[in-house]
Computed example of a mutant assay.
Amino acid sequence: MSSPDPDTAELAPVVHVLHDNEEWLPPLLAALDAAGVPHAEHLLDGSSFDLSAAPPAGVFWSRLSASAATRGRATAKEVARATLRWAERHGRRVVNGSGVVELEVSKVAQYLALSAAGFDVPRTVAVFGTADLKARARELPTPFITKHNQGGKGIGVRRFDDHVSFDAYVDGPDFEQPADGVTLLQEYLQAEEPFVTRAEFVGGRFVYAVRVDTSAGSFELCPADACVVPAGADPATWAPFAVRPSVTAEHPLVVRLEEFLAAQGIEVAGVEFIETVDGRVVPYDVNTNTNYNPDVERESSVSATAALADFLGGALADAA
Rank of each mutant, 00 (worst) to 15 (best):
S2E: 07
S2A: 06
S2Q: 08
S2G: 05
D5R: 02
P6I: 02
E10A: 09
L11I: 01
N21D: 15
P27K: 06
S48D: 13
G58N: 03
V59A: 05
R63A: 01
A66D: 12
A66R: 06
A76P: 02
T83R: 14
T83A: 14
R93F: 03
V94E: 10
N96D: 10
N96T: 05
E104H: 05
V105K: 00
S106C: 12
A109K: 08
Q110V: 09
L112T: 11
A113H: 11
L114V: 13
F119M: 14
T124Q: 07
A126F: 06
A135M: 11
N149P: 03
G151H: 04
G152W: 10
V157Q: 04
H163F: 08
F166C: 01
V170H: 10
D171P: 03
E176T: 07
L184H: 04
Y188R: 13
L189Q: 09
L189T: 09
A191I: 08
V202I: 15
G204P: 08
F206M: 04
G217F: 09
S218T: 15
P223H: 00
A233W: 00
D234H: 08
D234L: 08
A236H: 09
A236Y: 01
A242P: 00
P245E: 15
L261F: 04
A262C: 05
E267Y: 00
G270C: 06
E272N: 13
E272Y: 02
T276I: 08
R280V: 03
P283S: 12
N287E: 09
T290R: 03
P294F: 00
R298G: 00
S301R: 12
L308W: 10
